[in-house]
């Protein structure tokens, strides 16, 4: 390698605007993904509690399947399958669905933690099912799930670079084809890492504090 490929602050500075834009997208993807995951996860948790085996068995399998296969492969798969959608949209949805399978477990634990007496009281009062869930169980369950939610938000944030992994590799190949200096991956990757640390570390501290507050 020639001298010019040593670390250059100039290049580091030059790549920063791109990275900051990437960071914005990352945050956006995390937020959208988290919203999808929270809602879908709750739906899945409730469906799995329904006790209807025709539904719970396939849903259960699907959840296990999504949860134990790589997000990265799922992302590429979805991108190849739904070429008509922008890849950021696909990314958010896949991220959301993947994390929904985690979130459903958090909700399940939260719902299980609601004392049995609460259900029995609801039956004793002859509350309709919708009120039992909406007014009695969920308000208590959601509180139990907040710390889990925060943790997953942080770890989701750290997984969003999977969205770019594909693009980065493409860039790298392109860079090799067009001569080394078009894309300075040394500065880019290093700065990206530092940027992540800069954002995710304070966030996890915040989550931990939040957790202590709630506990």
């Amino acid at each position: 390698m020639d001298e010019t490929s040593a670390w250059s602050w100039e290049h580091a500075a030059a790549v920063l605007p791109d990275l900051l834009e990437g960071l914005q997208i990352t945050v956006l993807a995390t937020v959208v993904g988290m919203v999808i995951a929270s809602v879908l996860g709750l739906v899945v948790a409730m469906v799995r509690r329904s006790g209807l085996r025709v539904v719970t068995i396939p849903v259960g399998f699907l959840v296990e399947f999504i949860r134990s296969t790589p997000l990265l492969v799922q992302l590429v798969f979805a991108n190849l399958l739904f070429t008509q959608f922008p890849s950021l949209t696909i990314g958010c949805v896949v991220l959301g669905v993947h994390y929904a399978t985690y979130m459903s477990e958090v909700y399940r634990a939260g719902i299980d933690a609601v004392p049995k007496g609460q259900w029995e009281a609801a039956v004793a009062l002859d509350l309709p099912r919708s009120r039992t869930w909406g007014a009695v169980v969920l308000p208590q369950a959601i509180r139990n799930t907040l710390p889990g939610l925060g943790n997953y938000a942080v770890s989701m944030f750290k997984e969003t670079p999977f969205l770019f992994a594909i693009a980065v590799v493409e860039m790298y190949t392109a860079a090799q084809q067009y001569g080394a200096d078009t894309f300075r991956y040394m500065e880019a990757i290093t700065m990206a890492g530092l940027l992540f640390l800069l954002v995710s570390y304070p966030t996890s501290l915040l989550v931990r504090r939040l957790e202590n507050r709630l506990a």
């Binding site: 670079p161 999977f162 770019f164 990757i189």
Partner: peptide, 18 residues
């Protein structure tokens, strides 16, 4: 704090450089 993606790429793409 740093992502696995960043770490693996850093080891593979950056470490061989000066």
């Amino acid at each position: 704090g740093t992502s696995l993606v960043v770490q693996i790429f850093w080891l593979y793409y950056v470490l061989p450089l000066p």
